[in-house]
């Protein structure tokens, strides 16, 4: 187990190098000279432009630039934001928790609903229930999250007026008691989390269904039936645990999608998270902040994959006891 962990950790090194290199290339998407940057963002003062050149050492040979960039990234030093001059990493750090909270909540609800839906449709593939969920899945795949967000805002925020549609706290938040504060935040999170949940539900319930169908065909399921074990117990204990394993990997792979999705979600609902930070940075061409966000996003993805792999190795006795 320990050797597996170390091996896995070691394999991240080339990926990390790659991430820094690709993000470095993005800086150079801006064709040619740094003056182009000024053209893109007229608000960049001559001094800021000078700082940018110094930050990325844009006047040095390209290899020197990259090594310079790499050294800084390792120290998580992405320079200072154009907007307020504070360190990029500090700005990201204060915005990250709310993004992680929303994603964790949505994942929880996604799994909560995806399991029953996927399992029930796997029991009778092409049955009535399965056909209904197929329809739902297609709509889920085709519905833009921001459109769903708009519709829910229109319905609950404007027509019914029962849910807040913007931010994560009410304007009178500071005057509330601590219990009311939590309730206030929870209320603000209902719509964003619902939208994120709906988006992920379609895919996950499909995975659960596909895995269960595969597992239910296996020999050991037949053995369980032959021993007189009831169908409910076979599905919920013997099959489910096997079907769970590949889902751990999928869960890890869903991290970049969730993070990317939070850009849209947080922008629509005006949630001060990392996604919205990156969006604002893009609008104002705050390059240090953008680059920091991209690298941190990729590193978070790597972390997600690593955690998923370790969980898998721990959960699957075939890897745990090798």
């Amino acid at each position: 187990m320990l050797s597996y962990f170390l091996k896995r950790l070691f394999s991240l090194v080339p990926l990390l190098l790659g991430i820094t290199f690709i993000s470095f290339l993005i800086i150079h998407l801006a064709p040619g000279k740094p003056s182009y940057l000024k053209e893109m963002n007229p608000r960049i003062s001559a001094e800021a432009q000078e700082r940018l050149i110094r930050l990325y050492q844009l006047d040095k040979p390209i290899l020197v630039q990259y090594i310079h960039w790499l050294k800084r990234v390792i120290k998580l030093d992405f320079g200072n934001s154009f907007a307020d001059g504070r360190k990029v990493i500090v700005r990201i750090r204060e915005r990250l928790p709310i993004t992680l909270l929303i994603n964790a909540l949505s994942l929880f609800f996604i799994l909560l609903f995806a399991f029953p839906v996927g399992i029930i449709s796997s029991l009778k593939p092409n049955g009535v229930f399965d056909k209904c969920t197929t329809l739902f899945v297609f709509i889920g795949f085709s519905l833009p999250s921001f459109y769903l967000a708009l519709l829910l805002m229109l319905l609950f925020g404007i027509k019914l007026g029962c849910l807040p549609i913007s931010g994560i706290v009410s304007f009178n938040h500071s005057q509330l008691s601590s219990g009311e504060r939590i309730l206030d935040i929870a209320k603000h999170l209902i719509l964003p989390v619902s939208v994120a949940t709906f988006g992920g539900l379609a895919g996950f319930s499909r995975y659960v269904r596909a895995n269960m169908i595969e597992v239910l065909k296996q020999d050991y399921i037949r053995t369980a039936y032959a021993q007189g074990i009831g169908r409910g117990r076979i599905v919920c204990k013997f099959a489910l645990k096997n079907a769970l394993l590949p889902l751990i990997t999928i869960l890890g792979l869903s991290v970049p999608g969730l993070l990317g999705g939070s850009v849209i979600l947080e922008s629509v609902f005006a949630i001060p998270g990392m996604g919205r930070l990156l969006y604002e940075a893009t609008l104002s061409r705050d390059y240090p902040l953008i680059m920091g966000g991209v690298v941190i996003g990729a590193v978070l993805t790597l972390l997600g994959n690593l955690i998923a792999d370790l969980c898998y190795a721990w959960a699957d006795p075939r890897i745990r006891y090798q």
């Binding site: 993000s23 850009v263 990729a298």
Partner: peptide, 10 residues
């Protein structure tokens, strides 16, 4: 590894 939307924005 890059969240697609992060890459797009950058």
């Amino acid at each position: 590894c890059f969240p697609t939307f992060f890459l797009l924005l950058s």
